[in-house]
Amino acid sequence: MGRAEVQAYLRLRARVVGRQLRELGWWRLVALGLLLGLALARALATAAARPATSWLVPPAVALFVASGHRRRADLTFLALTMPQPRPGLAAEYSLLATPAALALLAWGRWGPALLTVALAAAVAWLPAATAGTGSSRRRSLFRSVAFEWVSGGRRGLLVAWAGLLGVSVYTRATAAGPALALVAWLLLLVPLYGTPEPWPQLLAVLRSPAAWLRGRVGWGLLYFGLTSAPLAWVLAGGPAGWAGTAGLLAWCAVVLTMLVLAKYAFYPQALLAQLAQAGVVVVGLSILSNNPAYLALLVACLLGLLWKSSRRLSHFRHD
């Protein structure tokens, strides 16, 4: 792929992203942009302030870019329509990593800044995530109707859960260790709800948007409750007690509900859903600062996502 082809690809991507952001709406874009921008700026400033922690930024950015790259639905299309799509993807991912690299440069971290861009560009050569054939798939511990959890189980989610349980038990004498393990378990579930299912899958069952949403939220909360029970037991046995554990579980349930609703609020646009989910995580973490304004914002976001997801799915209603 030559320079002209790379530029044409980047212009095409910019138009697609611009159209999706226009669908998001200017006021939602401003709200999400401010929340995500402030959260990312604070995280980058904290990491770049010390030489040791600044080296954590390149792999973190690379993992973020790789998670989106491997789930891209247009990789096969690009391979068929472009002779060499990897340079164009590398240029796109380098541009995505540029803000993080500039933040590192502002603190004089030249090595981590260059590595951030290089690792992000190298993600373009990773293969796409592929689903196994029916004969090779392992039997899942989750029911097929909870397909997000079935997919996560086949991607090693339970291995991560076992690791978090081990960390929780090891740090059981403190309240922070088990609590962070429980929050980390919730954050590991975010990618499960980041990719919308194909609309024919909804067409066969979607007679009532409210019933569909109740089912998705219900299955998510059920399996989160079952998997988080051992983590919560360890947390309750420590300094946090049962009251603190119940409060944290309630917070996790609200955030998980909003993540599921955000998936369908902009269905079937994966980018818009993932931006909304990122905003949900930022708003959810913000209320831990004990500022009542963030609690009001969380309630407003919950009601807004409930209304918009139901309204969005009504376009795909099948009677």
Rank of each mutant, 00 (worst) to 15 (best):
R13K: 10
A14Y: 08
V16S: 12
R19F: 10
W27M: 07
R28K: 07
L38F: 13
A49K: 13
R50F: 11
S54P: 08
P59F: 07
A60V: 00
V61N: 00
F64M: 10
R72W: 09
L80E: 15
T81N: 12
P85T: 03
P85V: 00
E92T: 11
Y93V: 02
A101P: 00
W107F: 15
W110D: 03
L115C: 13
T116C: 06
L119V: 07
A120T: 01
T133Y: 15
R138S: 11
R143Q: 11
R143K: 03
E148N: 03
S151P: 12
G156P: 06
V159C: 11
A160W: 06
A160L: 10
L164T: 02
S168E: 05
V169P: 00
Y170V: 15
A173W: 13
L192I: 09
T195D: 13
Q201C: 10
Q201P: 05
L213R: 07
L221A: 08
Y223E: 07
F224A: 09
G237R: 00
G237F: 05
A240T: 10
A243R: 15
G244F: 02
L248P: 00
L256R: 02
L259G: 04
A262N: 04
A270T: 09
L271R: 04
A273R: 03
V283R: 04
S289I: 14
A293Y: 12
Y294F: 15
Y294C: 06
L297I: 12
L297A: 13
V299F: 12
L305Q: 02
H315N: 14
